[in-house]
Structure formats: structure tokens, C-alpha cells
């Protein structure tokens, strides 16, 4: 028991440093990626290729004054950034980076991630409500309806995968996909279900939903800067803003982890087991896959214009939910047959 507790504490510490470092360097990646997509070099001034930009930014954020607008509910205003950061951190506890590297393999890991993801949505509501700003208010209301609309297809798709794997434990889900990339859940051909053509689409749905869940372009309605200035974090400065920022990037990593674990075989090596190379070992593969997914996140963000709130809800209710529901039924049927 105490070992578990120790494990969890250690994991949280590691997670915080991992998330912090990750968030900082993901910002760098984002800016660099944005630059390269846009025919410019991105950050270049601090360190080689601007690699020292994140720590400099961090210092800047931390040393800035934390402004609290007049007339806000201070408690709510202050708690919102923490709420944005904390669920993402907790979720890392159950993410299996490899067979052995997992802080606490909870049997209902999938559920836990969803529970805390929903809490993340709440942080936006709290931030918007607490800011005493009309733009923030509109933004937070949008963010909540978006979260509600996108959690449904996300969960249905996840349930489909859970049904195939027969477990809510993320580690077990990966275990069923070991032994080569053709075993990954993304492919239609699976030994448990025979042939299910909708699996690639399920993957896409999950991917789209995780983009929407993390409030990223083209679904960044919450912080639609050309409409709502900066949305829910308009009034936040200094580390309040920094926490939102880190929370966003932590959520991106969680989203990418979930996508990789559910559909792309987690830490599994694409071809058999190339364990004798250090990088190709489990953690390496996992991180490689995550960063590939994150690259696509960045790529998408710097390509598309933003949807509108009704466009977003239309997509969810008219396309994603019916297709994922149908896939759920189909998978259930196929599971019965095979």
C-alpha cells in the first residue's frame, strides 16, 4: 500500500516535471512548426534555433504581475487555472509509457481519464464565469457545450475499443495490440471482430474529438481570438495564463496518449520487437507515436480556419455520434459472431 502511495507521489513528481518540460517545449515545437508551415523560421534568437526560448518565456511569465480585475470573485478566479492544470496531471498517473513504466495501473484507467477530462471542461467554465467579462462568459459557455458534445462520440469510440480489448485498463488494451502494426486497433482486420471497416473511421473520430476536447484549432471556439479576444483567459496574466497554457499542452499530450494507446498500439513496436536498439524500445516507440500525433495536431492547427459553434455541434451530432454509434453496434455484433 505504502509502495503504491510512494509510486503515485513519485509519478506525480515525474509527471509534473514531464508535463512542465513537455509543455514548455511543445510551445517551442508549436512556434517552430507554425513558422515552418508559414515560410518563416520561427523562434531563432535565444540559443541555437531558439531552443532556449521556453525557459526565457517561463521566467517572463513567472515574473509578471498577476492582475486580478476589479469585482471578480477572487476564489473562483484563482482556482480556475489550477483546475485547468490539475486534471491533466492526475491523468498521467495511469498512462502506461511502457510495460513497466506506469505510475499506477488502475483497472478503470479509461474512466479515470474521462472523469478528469470533464473536470478540465469545468475549469473553462469557472474561468469564464469568474473573469467578469462578457467575452469570457460567452467563451466559457461555448467551451462547455463543446465539451459535452464531444465527450459523447469520444466515449462511444473508446467503448468500442474497450469491447474489443475486454478491459478498461490502458495497459491491457495495449497488450492486445502487441506483435506488429497489423494488430493495432486502427485496422479493420482484427482477430476478435473479424473484419470491421469502420475502425479507421473510429480512429479519425477519436482524433477529431481529442482535438475538440483540447480546445485546439480548428475547434478553438473557446479562445477564438478574432471573435472573443482571448476567450476565457482574457483576464489572466502571469502564471494564471501560464497554467492555462500548460494545461492546454498537457491535455494535448493526454489526448495524443489516448489516441496512441487505443488505436496505435501504445508502446508496441510496429514490427515484432526491435528491443535491442535503445531507442526502439518501448518508451521510445510510445513517445515517437505521441509526438507524431502532436505534429498532426500542430499541422492541423496551422492549416485550417476555425469552425463556428453550430458547425462544431453539427459535426458532432450529425456525423461523429451516428457513425461512432453505428460502429459500436457493428462491433458488438461482430464480437458475438467471432
Amino acid at each position: 500500500m505504502s509502495l503504491t502511495l510512494f509510486n503515485v507521489v513519485l509519478a506525480v513528481i515525474i509527471a509534473i516535471s514531464f508535463v512542465g518540460l513537455n509543455a514548455a517545449y511543445l510551445v517551442w515545437c508549436e512556434r517552430k512548426g507554425a513558422g515552418l508551415f508559414q515560410r518563416r523560421p520561427g523562434p531563432m534568437e535565444n540559443g541555437p534555433w531558439g531552443l532556449l526560448q521556453p525557459p526565457v518565456d517561463g521566467v517572463k511569465l513567472m515574473t509578471k504581475q498577476l492582475l486580478i480585475p476589479g469585482g471578480v470573485d477572487k476564489a473562483i478566479f484563482m482556482v480556475a487555472p489550477v483546475l485547468a492544470m490539475f486534471p491533466a496531471l492526475i491523468s498521467f498517473v495511469t498512462i502506461p509509457f511502457s510495460e513497466n513504466i506506469v505510475a499506477h495501473p488502475i483497472d478503470v484507467g479509461v474512466l479515470m481519464i474521462f472523469a478528469f477530462a470533464a473536470l478540465g471542461g469545468m475549469s473553462l467554465l469557472v474561468a469564464g464565469w469568474g473573469s467578469r467579462n462578457k467575452y469570457s462568459m460567452i467563451s466559457s459557455v461555448r467551451a462547455v457545450s463543446q465539451t459535452v458534445a464531444y465527450e459523447i462520440p469520444l466515449m462511444i469510440t473508446t467503448i468500442t475499443v474497450v469491447m474489443i480489448s475486454g478491459s478498461l485498463n490502458l495497459g491491457d488494451i495495449v497488450q492486445t495490440q502487441l506483435g506488429g502494426f497489423w494488430h493495432w486497433n486502427i485496422w479493420p482486420l482484427q482477430k476478435q471482430v473479424g473484419f470491421n471497416l469502420l475502425m479507421p473511421f473510429s480512429f479519425l473520430i477519436l482524433f477529431v474529438c481529442s482535438v475538440a476536447e483540447t480546445n485546439r484549432a480548428p475547434f478553438d471556439l473557446g479562445e477564438a481570438e478574432s471573435e472573443l479576444v482571448a476567450g476565457f483567459h482574457t483576464e489572466y496574466s502571469s502564471m494564471g495564463f501560464g497554467l492555462f497554457f500548460m494545461g492546454e499542452y498537457a491535455n494535448i499530450v493526454i489526448g495524443a496518449c489516448l489516441t496512441v494507446i487505443l488505436f496505435l498500439g501504445g508502446w508496441a513496436c510496429p514490427v515484432g520487437d526491435l528491443g535491442f536498439f535503445p531507442f526502439t524500445h518501448h518508451v521510445g516507440w510510445f513517445l515517437l507515436k505521441i509526438y507524431l500525433i502532436i505534429f498532426v495536431f500542430i499541422w492541423i492547427r496551422w492549416t485550417f480556419p476555425r469552425t463556428t459553434i453550430y458547425g462544431l455541434l453539427n459535426l458532432s451530432w450529425k456525423y461523429l455520434i451516428p457513425i461512432s454509434l453505428f460502429n459500436l453496434l457493428l462491433t458488438a455484433g461482430l464480437l458475438k459472431v467471432f
Binding site: G33, L36, R40, W299
Partner: peptide, 15 residues
């Protein structure tokens, strides 16, 4: 659209 931006990615910056 994604193909268009991807083609720009490896190119030399114009700035």
C-alpha cells in the same frame, strides 16, 4: 489544404 501546408514545411523560410 493539409497537403499544401505540408509542402511548405520543409522549404527554406522566405524571411
Amino acid at each position: 489544404g493539409m497537403w499544401v501546408t505540408l509542402k511548405e514545411f520543409p522549404r527554406r523560410p522566405v524571411t
